[in-house]
Every structure is written in C-alpha cells, then in structure tokens.
C-alpha cells in the first residue's frame, strides 16, 4: 500500500525493527526493478545482500535513504515513514550513513573538512566539537595523519576509509554499504574490510551489498540473495552457504565460490 499521508510513528512494543520494508515495488521507466520486497532489520543486525548484477540489490539499499524513489509499498526507518516530505527525508538521511562504491569524497575539501561538513551544518555542532569527533573517527579508521590532505592525494583504500569516517561522523543508527570494495585493488580491499569488521563488532546496524563472501561468513547475522528484483532466499550464513534452498542460489554460489 502506498502511504503518502503524513508520517506516523509506528510503535511496536517489543524490540521494534529499525528498518521495516513492506511490499516495496519500484520501476525505472517501464522496467520493474524491485518486486514486492519485504524486509525487516533489527537493531545491531548485520545483513549482507548479494546477487548478480542488475538484481536490484543496490537499488534496494538506495531506496532506504531515498536516493531512489519507490512507487509502491512503504519503507519505515526508525519509526518514520519515507514520503515526499523533504524535511523528513533529510532527517532520515542524517540518521542513515552511506558508503559508496566510488567513495564520492568531496575533492575540494580536505579529509577533515569532508568529515566535519555535515556535523557542523546539519547537526549544528561547533567547529571544535566537530573537529574533535572527526579526528577521533579518523583515528579509528587509522588515518589521522592524513586529515589535512585532499582526497586526490590518498589511495583508494584510504579514500574509502575516509568515506566511512565521514558517514560515522553523523553518528548514524544504520550504515548502508553499496559495494564498498568493488572499485579497489586486492590489497586495499583488506584494509577496508578490516575497518568494516571493527565497525560491526562495535554494534552498528549494517546493510552491506557486497560479493565478499568471506566477510559475509564472518560478520553477517543474515545473508540475503536477490535476483530479478526479488528476495530469493535469506538465511544465517552457515545455512545459506551450506544448504541453499533455491537452485538459483546454488547456481550463484557455485559461480562465485569456484573462481
């Protein structure tokens, strides 16, 4: 059901899910990219979404912070439903961090400025406070010494870690990762994955679109397989990898694990 009425607080008594997606349908022009998606994400849950390219997995997580607009169904993030209301969208976006495949750091700002921009202008923090927080997080992703440099001067792996720190500076409740390692060289993939594992251990709620099955096995509470815009199967990693229920999942796993 589409609900374009005013936002309503959805209150569930016991352990409310932080993200609740109901019967989500989305089209690009006439192309049906997401079909009847139902998904609930609980607090501190780590979910890995995988699937062949064009399966709609990126589109799904981009719908969660409204980088894409859905046509049918509802998405409720932390009790607030996503509608056309710009103010609400911005609120949800500031609570949901996102990391992109191509980093998308702001090239005209230093690493530190990249991190402090939103805390200062959206969270209305003082510059000193924001600087302190940013340095703290840059230390966590192990690049505090690069704070004064510009993104163009860093390696891909370093840039992606800055991007993670930038998202964390908003102190989000959920982090979305859209193929964070696909644009990186192998040795850099490792450093980024390590950062993500540490983040997972700290209790962050995470939705990760990735093909890194090692990461899924180690970190995920749940692995979701998508194809043709549908959720084909979801399970805990052990059962997902060892006992796939659908032959489509089996085929995908054999392709991705045997090369």
């Amino acid at each position: 059901m589409t609900q374009t009425t005013k936002a309503k607080k959805v209150n569930l008594d016991t352990n409310p899910p932080i993200i609740k997606i109901d019967k989500l349908n989305k089209w690009f022009g006439k192309f049906h990219v997401l079909k009847d998606i139902d998904l609930q994400v609980n607090k501190t849950e780590k979910i890995v979404i995988c699937g062949p390219s064009g399966s709609g997995k990126s589109t799904l997580i981009r719908c969660i912070n409204r980088l894409e607009v859905h046509q049918e169904g509802s998405i409720v993030v932390d009790g607030t439903e996503l509608t056309d209301d710009v103010k609400q969208i911005n609120e949800i976006r500031s609570d949901v961090g996102m990391v992109f495949q191509h980093f998308n750091l702001f090239p005209h700002l230093t690493v530190l400025e990249n991190c402090t921009l939103a805390p200062i202008w959206v969270r209305k923090k003082s510059k000193m406070e924001a600087d302190e927080l940013a340095m703290d997080l840059l230390t966590k992703v192990r690049i505090p010494d690069q704070a004064k440099k510009y993104p163009g001067q860093l390696s891909g792996g370093q840039q992606q870690r800055v991007a993670i720190a930038r998202a964390l500076c908003m102190q989000p409740r959920v982090m979305l990762f859209d193929e964070p390692t696909s644009a990186l060289d192998p040795e850099m993939i490792k450093e980024v994955l390590e950062t993500m594992i540490e983040l997972a251990e700290s209790g962050m709620t995470m939705l990760v679109v990735t093909h890194e099955m090692g990461f899924a096995n180690k970190v995920a509470d749940r692995v979701i397989f998508m194809d043709e815009g549908q959720i084909v199967e979801q399970n805990d990693p052990k059962n997902f990898f060892n006992n796939p229920k659908s032959d489509r999942t089996k085929l995908f796993l054999s392709q991705i694990l045997n090369h």
């Binding site: 043709e228 815009g229 229920k245 659908s246």
Partner: peptide, 21 residues
C-alpha cells in the same frame, strides 16, 4: 546437500499508470 527448489519469478507488472506516458 539437501534438495533445492526452483526459483519462481514474479511476473513483471507495468508501473502504476501515473509514472509513464
């Protein structure tokens, strides 16, 4: 490994009338 079931593809629907044309 246990038996697997076949993947059932949902039919493509056309978008709600208001978004194309």
């Amino acid at each position: 490994m246990s038996k697997t079931e076949a993947f059932v593809k949902l039919p493509d629907r056309s978008p709600p009338g208001s978004s194309v044309g």
